[in-house]
């Protein structure tokens, strides 16, 4: 039995501890916001937070989450209020949308550690997330916008 927290809620799953966290989330817990794209930590679609740090859940065994806090895209905010979600909506970032959960989760770590990221910071933080639809220019602009929005929010 592996026990951990997902978006603040305690979960207990009876699966082989080497099962990737991605499939525990998607199949055992029926949380499908986190996506499968490659299974080899090459595309970033499976990105979640483990105690606030980004991990690729398609290769992280669920045992790694034991006792820890997992945050998925579903738990990033109540009601689309994260500055990234607001910026994503304001600028219509997604096209097909399949990669966007992973993009946002990676960007969230960037903004948590750097409130005014430069384009170089974005290059360094987001290189692991593939978008086949080519929304990169918008992702970049939206991260800058989210940083602005977050700055305004904290200024209030």
């Amino acid at each position: 039995m592996t026990s951990f927290f997902v978006n603040g809620k305690a979960v207990h799953v009876d699966v082989d501890p080497s099962t990737p966290l991605l499939w525990v989330l998607r199949d055992s817990l029926e949380m499908t916001g986190t996506k499968f794209g490659c299974g080899m930590a090459l595309c970033g679609a499976c990105t979640v937070h483990l105690d606030g740090k980004a991990i690729r859940s398609c290769v992280a065994p669920v045992s790694r989450a034991e006792g820890k806090h997992v945050t998925t895209i579903e738990g990033l905010s109540e009601n689309l209020t994260h500055p990234l979600q607001k910026a994503w909506i304001e600028m219509d970032v997604p096209q097909c949308g399949y990669c966007q959960s992973g993009q946002i989760m990676s960007a969230a770590v960037l903004l948590a550690e750097n409130s005014k990221p430069t384009d170089q910071d974005i290059d360094d933080a987001m290189g692991g997330n593939i978008c086949r639809c080519g929304t990169y220019p918008r992702i970049r602009r939206a991260i800058h916008r989210a940083a602005e929005l977050a700055g305004q929010r904290s200024a209030k």
């Binding site: 998607r26 029926e30 949380m31 499908t32 916001g33 986190t34 996506k35 499968f36 998925t72 895209i73 579903e74 990033l76 905010s77 689309l80 990234l84 979600q85 994503w88 909506i89 304001e90 219509d92 970032v93 997604p94 949308g97 399949y98 966007q100 959960s101 946002i104």
Partner: peptide, 21 residues
Amino acid sequence: TRRLDTPSKTNGSAQFGLDVS
């Protein structure tokens, strides 16, 4: 015009074929 499907694509609620159960 802002796309109608953007919000659901930013919070994991948008459902793709792979998500169906």
